[in-house]
């Protein structure tokens, strides 16, 4: 292209040659860059994700315990059929589902509401912002212990406050339903600020003139919020939703510290069950099968969600 326009003089030919060389160099340097920049990540992914996942699938077909590694008995699909016919596992899925639903709903509602208030400019916003974000900076284990401490039925602050306004005390961690709500309250306490953070970032990304146009067009504040603010930040809010959906689905740390899976095994999430099977009972084969099931669900879920996200952000 450039070469065709160049006059046929020694200088022109030299220039064309140099351009060709530069183009070649550019292309190969691009390849080199892609390869060089991606290989560390790829190596880590292969070693820490692909290899373990394939091994898990492999182990899931064996009757095998980490304690007695010498005896590995192939059992085919037995681990899976056993798990899938086990009513206890279904209970865990139901509990996990309830937990995810409550958490994500509360967190999205609170996060969007608080995020909308925080996007406005007001004095001291940065400090208030940082203070409100504190729960998500804590370790989930600390959060679990803190809420366990506050929710203690006898000397916890929550029951003290309830009884001081004349409400009955609740045995928060001793009853199945109360424990579910306690865990949801702790998880929401921790993660609603995260949604608020992402929502604020998304809301502030909407140009001022869009709001002005909407105001001039006669849209009420509520109409503006639902027809402009929310849909325009939908892709970011959807990312927040994906992250929280997946994270609460695999929640483990919080339950270790808050309920220990109790009362009984009523607050065991699927993750908790994997850990218990693998590291308390050392049924490694069975745990592998359960882990594979969990992985399939989460991967499937995130594939669907991410595909939807891509479709969503393509529109803009």
């Amino acid at each position: 292209m450039a070469a065709a326009d160049a006059p046929i003089t020694p200088e022109g030919q030299a220039a064309a040659h140099a351009a060709r060389q530069a183009k070649l160099r550019k292309r190969s340097s691009g390849r080199l860059m892609i390869f060089g920049f991606l290989s560390p990540s790829l190596a880590i992914l292969l070693f820490m994700v692909a290899y373990p996942v394939f091994s898990l699938v492999y182990y899931s077909f064996f009757n095998f315990s980490a304690l007695r590694q010498a005896t590995m008995k192939p059992v085919g699909l037995k681990n899976y059929t056993f798990l899938l016919s086990d009513p206890e596992l279904w209970e865990r899925f139901v509990f996990t589902g309830k937990f995810v639903f409550i958490c994500v709903t509360l967190q999205m509602l609170i996060g969007i509401f608080v995020g909308y208030q925080l996007q406005k400019n007001f004095r001291g916003r940065d400090v208030i912002f940082t203070i409100l974000m504190m729960p998500m900076m804590l370790s989930p284990v600390v959060v679990g212990f803190l809420w366990r401490y506050m929710l203690n039925s006898e000397w916890g602050i929550v029951n003290f406050l309830l009884s001081s306004v004349g409400l009955p005390k609740v045995d928060w961690l001793g009853q199945t339903n109360a424990a579910l709500w306690a865990a949801a309250a702790a998880d929401t306490w921790m993660w609603a600020p995260f949604i608020a953070l992402l929502a604020t970032a998304a809301f502030r990304g909407i140009p001022e003139t869009i709001y002005e146009a909407a105001e001039v067009d006669g849209a009420s504040p509520a109409y503006r919020f639902f027809r402009i603010t929310l849909p325009m930040s939908a892709p970011v809010l959807f990312i927040a939703l994906i992250l929280r959906l997946i994270d609460s689905f695999k929640q483990y740390d919080l339950f270790v510290a808050l309920t220990g899976g109790g009362p009984g095994s009523s607050t065991e999430t699927v993750s908790y069950a994997v850990a218990k099977t693998a590291f308390s009972y050392f049924y490694t084969g069975e745990a592998s099968a359960l882990a594979v099931i969990l992985l399939l669900i989460i991967t499937g879920l995130s594939l669907i969600l991410v595909r939807h996200l891509t479709k969503m952000s393509e529109k803009y």
């Binding site: 373990p52 996942v53 898990l56 699927v270 693998a278 490694t284 882990a291 992985l295 989460i298």
Partner: peptide, 20 residues
């Protein structure tokens, strides 16, 4: 694939990490 590291439940891979 990269994002999956964020999605993977730690306990699931831990079953194998423990051995590895």
């Amino acid at each position: 694939f990269v994002l999956s590291t964020r999605m993977l439940p730690p306990v699931a891979v831990l079953v194998f990490y423990h051995l590895m």
